[in-house]
Design a protein around this nucleic acid. Structure first.
Lengths: 258, 258
DNA sequence: TTGTGAATATCGCGT
DNA sequence: ACGCGATGTTCACAA
């Protein structure tokens, strides 16, 4: 049996199942009317209302209302769940140290409690991230500009790591900052920090900076211009990957390489 | 009845309850073995495994595994949920436009499905945010430095809004940037942008910048020094508000000034 | 543990 | 809708 459910349980019966489920690594959902208090990095209180509470065996706890993608309260992985009954009411408390923080859920009414056994070995495979964008540029540096030659990724500077570092057609050092979506001023600012650091490092050379993103806001465009930084528009998704390959590289066989 | 539950339902029975629940604004949880595909801002695939799926009436959908605080897949509020049965298997699809994106959950096995009626009017009250920090400084400007006089919050500049803007004891313009926790280089960079913008605006004055945060990283400290920016250590929570007042400043009367 | 930046970030506020 | 910055951000990765 992968799911054990109690309907409108007494708070004591709920406690028994909760302790059992916490003990053997099951995932638990509780639905009912409750209040929530949090104290730790900040502090919060939430009055009574109907919520879905999810307790994961890794120590995560989530309190969800009927709105929003974010839980109204939560605790990250690594916490310890404890259940108890005070004044005849179920209480779930989840806490951790470093930082010290505690979440307290007190139930006024219990509608349903379920403990699930979870078997999940699959990992998510995601495409269209900044990492994908980087791969595409390394395969086809001309996407940045004709003659660009990457020499390193995550190249360290005193201001932090540069996404792609290389040389332009004229042999000048180039720092490339990648963003997978439309960017605001902070991205331009970040690139400028890297370029400034590289200008100190390459005191006698003309260091350039290029921002690669789908687009930039107006203010960001001004910021780039003010600081002599370049911009190249590029989408993170390789919609025309096949066309690009035909166009740019002639890899026809030997799929077994590497 | 606030909770309607089906245990190990047929996929057709599940479909009927889902359509009913989507229709009248109930929150739904489904537990079972499923695969998930996402396509939109990025794209992802997830092989078969046991997961808890939560569909909210505001269009949010969450797919949770037994680990982590983040759902393994999701869709934000504003989406449209649709359920169907293909090849005898339940499928839940949630999609939206702007941006165009779709989440597809296909069930191989259904363990449990529940529809909840949710009543929740309570709002979260949170303390210890940056907003709290700002209030404290406006009440006690000397926390920034003796003689500081705030004149505006969210003061607009061509580089964006400055948290607190005012004058120091010598009448010089001061931009104060607030952070509720230990900060990295980007905060110093952000403050520098504001100060640069203000230096253009107040061309004939000596504009200063002060970062207020619990602490800064080493590299950030250097960045601040390089750019002549100040730093004041301050916690977002007013734990020792009383003690701090006795200790740090000699403000004995006239709390009503401001 | 700390530092650093990405994220399908989400969210709220303003224009 | 876009722009902008905070978030109890979470998360992975590196030093």
């Amino acid at each position: 049996m992968t799911a054990t459910t109690l309907h409108r349980p007494t708070h004591r019966d709920a406690l028994a199942l909760l302790e059992s489920a916490f003990g053997d690594g099951r995932l638990v959902t509780v639905f009912g009317r409750c209040t929530v208090e949090y104290d730790g990095r900040a502090s919060s209180t939430l009055g009574a209302g109907d919520r879905l509470v999810v307790c994961k065996p890794d120590g995560t706890i989530l309190v969800h209302t009927d709105e929003k993608r974010k839980p109204v309260n939560w605790q990250p992985p690594g916490c310890t769940h404890r259940a108890s009954v005070r004044d005849g009411r179920l209480r779930i408390r989840s806490s951790r140290t470093t930082p010290d923080e505690t979440l307290d859920v007190r139930f006024e009414r219990l509608d349903q409690l379920t403990a699930y056994e979870v078997n999940d070995r699959s990992d998510l495979t995601l495409h269209g991230s900044e990492e994908d964008l980087r791969q595409r540029i390394l395969e086809e540096p001309a996407l940045v500009e004709e003659g660009f030659e990457p020499s390193a990724t995550e190249r360290e500077t005193t201001a932090g790591p540069v996404d792609i570092f290389g040389e332009d057609a004229a042999g000048r050092p180039v720092a490339v900052e990648l963003k997978r979506r439309r960017v605001g001023p902070s991205a331009a600012s970040q690139l400028k920090r890297y370029v400034d650091a590289l200008r100190t490092e390459f005191a006698d050379e003309d260091v350039r900076g290029v921002l690669v993103a789908p687009s930039v806001t107006d203010r960001t465009s001004e910021l780039l211009a003010e600081n002599g930084l370049g911009f190249v528009s590029l989408e993170p998704t390789a919609e025309d990957a096949a066309a690009g390959k035909e166009d740019g590289s002639d890899r026809t066989a030997e799929d077994d390489s590497r």
